[in-house]
């Protein structure tokens, strides 16, 4: 059994691959920033907010964490138009990613908030700071420090999981691979190359996040 690798056949499609790669990177960066913002708000609401709001957040988190990402994506892209909400595949992809990471990061950040000693919160309150000032100035900083590694892993998971958006024709790296394979039938070469691209992307992202962490959380 022998197979002759012919990567040269991919060359004409280099710009398709590049566009896909850029899309995946932008999708990951944007949904990371927005998803963590959602997670921070969600975790804050669950720990420091009123009980009713905490319950609303809990329902959101459980709904997202207990259903497959691809179903969430399909619901947004194919389901919502029934309610008159028609989104482009790109918008649907971004939205699904933010909603998904938002739920997971809510739980991760909440764990960080709950790991901050209660005494620090009482000390802040005793200094006449409001609950929200205590949260922002004292609690969140310590919480993020504690959960940064877990959050980094989740970002990588979400980045790799973003391949699913190709299923609604959002033009990411996997979509590019599907596109090329359907044209030249070089499935082996295309998916090998794209797998390597994801691998490199994940390793670089991890390294970048680690470096970023060192800058944000300077030695103390």
């Amino acid at each position: 059994m022998s197979y002759k690798l012919q990567f040269a056949e991919l060359l004409p499609y280099w710009n398709v691959l590049l566009q896909g790669l850029v899309f995946t990177i932008v999708l990951t960066v944007v949904s990371t920033v927005a998803g963590i913002a959602v997670g921070t708000a969600g975790a804050s609401a669950r720990t420091f907010g009123p009980a009713w709001l905490g319950r609303v957040v809990a329902v959101y988190v459980e709904l997202i964490r207990n259903t497959p990402f691809i179903v969430q994506l399909f619901f947004i892209f194919f389901g919502l138009p029934a309610l008159g909400l028609k989104l482009s595949e790109t918008t649907a992809a971004f939205l699904a990613m933010v909603i998904n990471l938002g739920a997971y990061s809510t739980e991760i950040i909440r764990a960080g908030i709950e790991a901050v000693p209660k005494g620090h919160i009482e000390a802040g309150l005793s200094l006449a700071m409001t609950k929200w000032e205590v949260l922002r100035r004292i609690v969140l900083n310590q919480a993020f420090r504690k959960i940064y590694p877990a959050l980094s892993s989740q970002i990588i998971i979400v980045m790799l999981g973003s391949a699913v958006v190709s299923q609604i024709s959002a033009e990411d790296l996997t979509y590019a691979a599907n596109f090329i394979a359907s044209r030249n039938f070089r499935n082996f070469e295309v998916y090998l190359l794209v797998a390597l691209a994801y691998l490199v992307l994940a390793i670089l992202t991890r390294a970048a996040l680690r470096a970023l962490g060192r800058v944000i959380f300077k030695a103390r």
Partner: peptide, 17 residues
């Protein structure tokens, strides 16, 4: 009230960051 009533705790509770 708390602007005028300070408190010091057994566990110090300094903000580590």
């Amino acid at each position: 009230l708390r602007r005028h009533v300070g408190m010091v705790f057994q566990q110090f509770n300094l903000f580590p960051h």
